[in-house]
Design a protein around this nucleic acid. Sequence first.
DNA 1: CTTGAAACG
DNA 2: CGTTGCAAG
Lengths: 312, 312
Amino acid sequence: MSKRAKKNEQEAGDGDHDNGTAPAAKKGKKVKEPEAPILYSDPPDKMNSKDGRAANMKITSWNVDGLRAWVKKKGLDWVRDEAPDVLCLQETKCAEKSLPDEITSMPEFPHKYWAGSDEKEGYSGVAMLCKTEPLKVTYGIGKEEHDKEGRVITAEFPTFFLVTAYVPNSGRGLVRLDYRKTWDVEFKAYLSDLDKRKPLVLCGDLNVAHEEIDLKNSKGNKKNAGFTAEEREGFNQLLAAGFTDSFRELYPEQANAYTFWTYMMNSRSKNVGWRLDYFVLSSALLPGLCDSKIRNQAMGSDHCPITLHMVV
Amino acid sequence: MSKRAKKNEQEAGDGDHDNGTAPAAKKGKKVKEPEAPILYSDPPDKMNSKDGRAANMKITSWNVDGLRAWVKKKGLDWVRDEAPDVLCLQETKCAEKSLPDEITSMPEFPHKYWAGSDEKEGYSGVAMLCKTEPLKVTYGIGKEEHDKEGRVITAEFPTFFLVTAYVPNSGRGLVRLDYRKTWDVEFKAYLSDLDKRKPLVLCGDLNVAHEEIDLKNSKGNKKNAGFTAEEREGFNQLLAAGFTDSFRELYPEQANAYTFWTYMMNSRSKNVGWRLDYFVLSSALLPGLCDSKIRNQAMGSDHCPITLHMVV
DNA sequence: CTTGAAACG
DNA sequence: CGTTGCAAG
């Protein structure tokens, strides 16, 4: 391989979450054979906690990248099969009045909560759909500055809080990294405050790959949104505040486990991806943790869904 | 039919070229049966002039409403079957560098000319593709004010000028009617000047239905772009300057003959349309006129193509 | 590459 | 309703 080609393979483009592979080879140049995608084995869901109790709460989280398109691509069929107790969605990109009937009328989830962007229509937005009614539902993190983009919904259940979040992307050229750093600080403070009242589950697109193992091209992406030192440190600080990355807790060595692949350059078929979606748990909930799964077969978005089984 | 229903059927919306039919009937109300579309018979092309000479020039004009989408919808397959000597396109909405290979490499037309909008990418734009090379090709009408939107190409052939035009739409709410009136005056002047040198054929989307016979809902569209008194008078003035609407010349009583149908409200399937595309001829070319056809079976745009046969 | 909205028709 | 460039990811 030429020096230049090697460089390309590690460089990232100026986009966010780029996979860093070279662009289409020039005509006449030798092209690398397509390799078999490197996946990881997917054992059956563990339905019991370490201390032997049976899971009684199933939560699924999915960045749908445009709810309307995702519904057309039959994302809800997958959800019906998965049948979680709570479904959390990020990047719905849809005003409440424009939601498809198929989801607003879904009988499996009688309790539905929507947060949209105040300013920009079709931007950001999260949702939480529940089988049973939460005690209370709140929107945002209680900071005017951060609550205009429909990024957080918090539901209080008898024994825990469930927070779903779509963390701000730092953007191409890291144009929004400064804002993201503020967000990370204030969001962690919000979660710490909640945690003092009741343990919590945080799920959603946290827009960071924590460690090198959490993305394919770690080398080439150190200056790109989602893998900067600042964003990774933000995640470190969250864990230091007493929270746990449930997937990594259960599968500390598992490589090639991703939840996002850019639509560009056939990244998904090559499993050139990032782990950006998480279930993060208060330490008090760890004894009830049964499994934390990545459903990388489910299509309909550039992210795949993740599912948590726990005892609450 | 109720008075209200009747009113709806004649009213136009505030859009341009609306067909003026009522919106979807309210639930529970009686709905009119869908009627068989009223078309007109399409006799074989006349390939001789009145004085018996054989046609030796075939020109096709088509508002493609986005050349790239039209190419994907196989518009070029239809063109290859039609096999005109000159193909004129309007609303290409495509910068020259973004043209699909399939059209730039088309061997049937070795001589290709493109005009695009200077300011707005993906807006307006016309093209002329020729089997034989014109003596000279010019762009615009020689008035700075009118030549920024890629609306006119003029090709000089040995015995005539061919002008293809995409005349400015007066817009919803007639926001651009004033500009259109200026255009009509200056464009007529341009054509009159050309006509002094050599007779001409003008083809393209002239964005006006001339008389009541030239659109389905004439009553409801008198205040809408394409059928205002001002635009119709502009066309009258053009004819008064010594030019002839070739289709109407040959088929003076032919109703239900349209070249445009809004994509909305299934207008095309109901043949609720407008005749907006024309071949307009200098009087000196009338003896050579053989036929002026509307190819209303050709799909790929909200306009259909038209074809002229003449002796030059 | 893909989404959604905006402008235009 | 459907096209385009656009911002965003």
